[in-house]
């Protein structure tokens, strides 16, 4: 068990205390803040630390090359893979260039092009998820933001090579899922994955964005909560205070987890792989069957 950081605020009530225990001493809101920490390692850090022989490939072949999504051939300890991920900047200037990792339709279409290419080359796909969400802008709507995400989600169900998705920071709603329909979903212990940002949720359901900490708790967006809900497959450990306090160790853990899962999926034939993926997503969610009482 890791030590609790000193600057972490005190437990307010018993309900929160329970959540804290599950999340290794942190509230959901504290984890949200860690996942967005300015020093948190992003895709480009992992690219330097664990991937080799990266051959970046550009463009969706229809409209443009979206700098918010980066992809190409890469090697991970000798395993040849197709790597695709949201690309956040490390400072304001880079973030403006990369649109804060918020992809436009051309980004999702590039991602799909590269995933199809991986299928032809018969190499597995690793997607790196770290986005506040798909870009909510006029030109994105005009060019079919919804269609591009929908298409990726549908096509990823058919792709005949293994797909591993790793949530390294912010898993922002449809923008994350657009490259996130993996056979295995791995998630760093201080990353988040949510249907809506806590601020967005609070401003709708609490009519006040300042209730974001309550919304964060209610949304069950932490890795611990999502593992219990059978949404993710594995939690990758990072230092309790966040990956930025131990970048190399975290990168090592990410590498080992991806390799382990590549080996697991590599043992399956295509038919099994697709059948498992289909049943994984068919079983997502919780409902009440009144016939079964």
């Amino acid at each position: 068990m890791s030590h609790k950081s000193e600057n972490i605020s005190k437990v307010k009530n018993t309900g929160e205390a329970k959540t804290k225990k599950a999340n290794n001493g942190l509230t959901a809101w504290e984890i949200v803040k860690i996942s967005r920490h300015s020093g948190r390692p992003v895709f480009q850090d992992y690219l330097k630390l664990i991937f080799e022989n990266f051959i970046p490939l550009h463009g969706d072949r229809y409209f443009a090359d979206d700098p918010a999504i980066v992809g190409g051939f890469a090697e991970l300890e000798g395993n040849k893979i197709m790597l695709v991920g949201h690309y956040k900047g490390k400072n304001t200037e880079e973030n403006i260039e990369r649109n804060f990792g918020m992809a436009k339709p051309e980004g999702y279409r590039k991602a799909l092009r590269l995933m199809r290419l991986a299928e032809r080359f018969n190499i597995p796909i690793v997607t790196i998820i770290d986005t506040p969400g798909a870009f909510p802008g006029m030109e994105a709507e005009e060019r079919g933001q919804a269609e591009s995400i929908a298409k990726n989600i549908t096509e990823m169900a058919k792709i005949e090579v293994p797909i591993i998705s790793v949530v390294i920071g912010e898993g922002g709603s449809g923008g994350a899922l657009g490259i996130g329909v993996g056979d295995k979903i791995l998630m760093l212990s201080r990353a988040i994955y949510s249907v809506i940002s806590p601020e967005g949720c609070a401003s709708i359901l609490w009519r006040d964005a300042s209730y974001a900490p309550d919304a964060a708790k209610a949304l069950n967006l932490t890795a611990d909560a999502l593992l219990k809900l059978d949404v993710i497959d594995e939690i990758i450990e990072e230092p309790a205070e966040g990956a930025h306090t131990g970048v190399h160790k975290t990168a090592e853990n990410v590498k080992n987890s991806i390799i382990k899962n590549l080996n697991l999926l590599g043992n399956l034939d295509v038919e099994e792989l697709l059948k498992n993926r289909s049943s994984k997503y068919s079983n997502m969610g919780k409902y009440n069957d009144i016939n079964k009482g």
């Binding site: 899922l177 249907v195 069950n220």
Partner: peptide, 23 residues
């Protein structure tokens, strides 16, 4: 859109339904 009160479970319904469409 997705039902916020079910958190990521509702987000995953996008993948679930599209899986049916893919078939």
């Amino acid at each position: 859109g997705a039902r916020m009160q079910e958190g990521v479970l509702s987000l995953m319904q996008m993948a679930k339904t599209c899986n049916g469409i893919a078939r």
